[in-house]
Simulated scan of single mutants.
Amino acid sequence: MLARSPRRLSFGVLAAGAAISLPLALAAQDDGAPPPDADQQEAAPESGELAPEAKAALDRMSEVIAALDGDAQRTGNNWQFKVEERMIVVVTDTDADRMRIITPIAAASELPEGAMERLMQANFDTALDARYAIGQGLVWGAFVHPLDSLTTRDFASGILQTKSLADTFGTTFSSGVLNYGGGDSGAIIERQLNDLLEELDERQRRDAI
């Protein structure tokens, strides 16, 4: 039997992730790179020091991000960009062979009674590959994956799932791919993913000419 739709709770949501500032200096700490100066220009990754699998994964990630946001900021092997005005941060750790996609959602101190349990329930059945997490006083949407085995589809799907967790926070709490309900989120996310992958294929064909 399908579970009843959750009652909408009153959450303090950060509209499109724009209510806080998460500079790339923070993300840069995860891969051992020093925080950049405020006026430092975009830094290119030192790809010569990376394993071939990691470099290939970073190149794929860069292509996906460029397709989503032409104004994406990059510091080392970390990115900050927007998808439909929602701020997304991608952090990599090449030594640990891990990457993560995160987006800020709400102030943890403003969660109403019962909200923490609801987040854990969502992590069990509707969050899927992306998850809700709490850190630095905030609720986040987060997606974690090994770096060297990350495919273009994995990465694009991770971005869309993480964004969906933020967009549905307080209502369906869904990554949008699969759930036990009968809504439309899964089809919407799949369509967005296919559109993005088609755009990447078209870019690669144009570059090859």
Rank of each mutant, 00 (worst) to 15 (best):
A28I: 02
A33T: 08
L50P: 01
L24A: 00
G32P: 01
A25W: 03
E42P: 00
L24T: 01
A25T: 08
D39S: 13
E49L: 13
D31A: 02
L50M: 11
D39K: 11
Q40H: 08
P34G: 12
S21Y: 10
E42G: 08
L24Y: 02
P36R: 09
A51C: 10
Q29F: 11
A38N: 04
A33K: 01
A27R: 02
D31K: 01
S47F: 14
A33Y: 04
G32T: 02
Q29W: 10
S47G: 05
P23T: 04
G48D: 04
L24M: 03
A25F: 02
E46M: 07
P23M: 03
E46S: 10
Q41V: 04
L50T: 05
A25M: 07
A28L: 05
A28Q: 10
P35H: 15
A27G: 05
A27V: 01
E49D: 12
S21Q: 08
A27N: 07
L22N: 11
A43Y: 04
E49P: 00
A44R: 15
A51W: 12
I20Y: 09
E42V: 06
L50E: 06
D39W: 13
P34E: 12
Q40D: 08
G48Y: 02
A25Q: 08
E49K: 13
L50A: 10
A51G: 15
E42H: 06
Q41F: 09
L26T: 10
P23E: 09
P23V: 02
A28W: 03
G48N: 00
Q40K: 07
E46W: 08
E42T: 07
P45A: 09
G32E: 01
D39Y: 13
P23N: 11
S47K: 09
S21R: 10
P45N: 06
P34K: 14
Q29K: 15
D31M: 01
Q41N: 05
S47C: 09
Q29I: 08
G32L: 06
L24R: 01
A51Q: 14
L22M: 12
G48F: 02
E42R: 10
P34D: 11
A43F: 05
A25H: 02
L26G: 05
P34C: 14
A43I: 03
S47Y: 15
D39Q: 13
P35V: 12
A44D: 15
P36W: 12
D39G: 08
Q41I: 04
E46N: 11
S47R: 13
A33P: 00
S47P: 00
E42I: 08
A44K: 15
S47I: 12
E46F: 07
P34M: 12
Q41S: 13
L24N: 03
P36V: 04
A27Q: 05
D30H: 12
A28F: 02
A38I: 05
L50N: 06
D37F: 04
G32F: 06
D31Y: 05
G32N: 02
P23L: 06
S21E: 10
L26N: 11
L26W: 15
G48I: 00
Q29T: 15
L22H: 14
L26V: 14
A44H: 09
P35W: 14
Q29A: 15
A28D: 04
I20P: 01
A28P: 00
P45D: 00
G32Q: 01
P35E: 14
P45Y: 02
P23Y: 09
S21W: 06
G32D: 02
L26M: 11
L26C: 07
P23W: 05
P35N: 13
P45K: 03
E46D: 11
L24C: 01
A25E: 10
D37R: 07
P34T: 11
